[in-house]
Design a protein around this nucleic acid. Sequence first.
DNA 1: CAAATTTAGTTAACACTGTTAATTATGCAA
DNA 2: TTGCATAATTAACAGTGTTAACTAAATTTG
Lengths: 214, 214
Amino acid sequence: MGIRERKERHKENLKAQILEAAKRLFVKEGYAATSIRKIAAEIEFSPTTIYLYYKDKSDIAYALHQEGFLLFRERLAVLELVEHPFERLRAMGRAYIQFALDHPDFYEVMFIMREPMDYLETHHPEQDWPEGERVLDGLFQTIHACQQAGYFNDIGTQEMAILSWNVVHGLCSLHITGHFRSIAEKCAPHQDFKKDSLLEDVFQAYMKVIERMK
Amino acid sequence: MGIRERKERHKENLKAQILEAAKRLFVKEGYAATSIRKIAAEIEFSPTTIYLYYKDKSDIAYALHQEGFLLFRERLAVLELVEHPFERLRAMGRAYIQFALDHPDFYEVMFIMREPMDYLETHHPEQDWPEGERVLDGLFQTIHACQQAGYFNDIGTQEMAILSWNVVHGLCSLHITGHFRSIAEKCAPHQDFKKDSLLEDVFQAYMKVIERMK
DNA sequence: CAAATTTAGTTAACACTGTTAATTATGCAA
DNA sequence: TTGCATAATTAACAGTGTTAACTAAATTTG
């Protein structure tokens, strides 16, 4: 029987298979359209089977959230090689934006949606947000190195790190949620090229601003 | 003649009543928990009656979105009285943050949720986002006045306006979606007071940064 | 080996959701 | 009074997350 074969094949990685199926649906149709029942259908199991491996839907959301951070760190890791701290900061910002443009669904589950955060708070109240802290820590170190190199020394390292994060997050989140759709062309009605480079332009403006802080 | 007018008035009345009921539920339990059926129950009408006055749920979301901008502009209007443009910019930023803290649900429907934006695009594709543009225009003018006063003249006005918007939006959105919950205390483990003033601190850092750009 | 027990997975159901088609009730004009 | 347009309703569709009860298979125990 085909069903028995399938069962034997995936005896132990069913949890991983659920996540893979969820990820497939998720990147194809977004989180909102990824229902428990569809995930179940994708792996040819009953919907309730999902609940044997994941507590609830926010648990799956958090798993996708973690998956996104895996992708994200993988991308940013190479930037450790950029020696000049200020140029590294610039590269990190651009990489952040590019990640959001390449993987808007992952960006949403990582930085916009409440569900993964709610899962952390309700099911693991003791610990806080390891993924976010790890990324922010990398940014913190680069900002610190910038300050060692003489940049923005009259600003707190934490404040500067969170500020820089905020600038790119503001851009990416407003872009993804559709709030920039009409803003872009209003900003440059007779410059069509600007429509596609608003994120880049504003980020460059930020870098220009903090560049002077030496 | 007069009959039709009265009918229209009654119709507008019920439409307004629906919105009022939606707003009540919305500020009390958030958008996610505000269902069509609950709105209908609140005004003691059948659920389908809602559809005689609003196209679909995203239509209601957009109405709440507009309602939020009404509140928002009402608050910011008085800041036109602040003469010094840079101080006006500072006041606008603080007012923006305070609005988000006071009305997180409205902030969410105004700047975070896709639904109102989707309504605009699918049901009114010709026009773009009037609420956003109007607010951004006010910011644009203040930035322009700052530049006239000698601030950040080597940065484009549009870029500077959107950048400033991004900074406060980044702060408010990450705060509202719960992404700052654990970040705050990590930043200042032995300074309890900082937990509540992260938004203010980072905003001040931004103001400090652009203050130097004269 | 057979019986008991644990485990994995399923079916059926609950209580919701947004939304539409068909139907009834209501007030107005001819 | 009849006919008609409109307002509002009921019933239903197609989905959602989630839980309790149940079955079948595997494993442990006497």
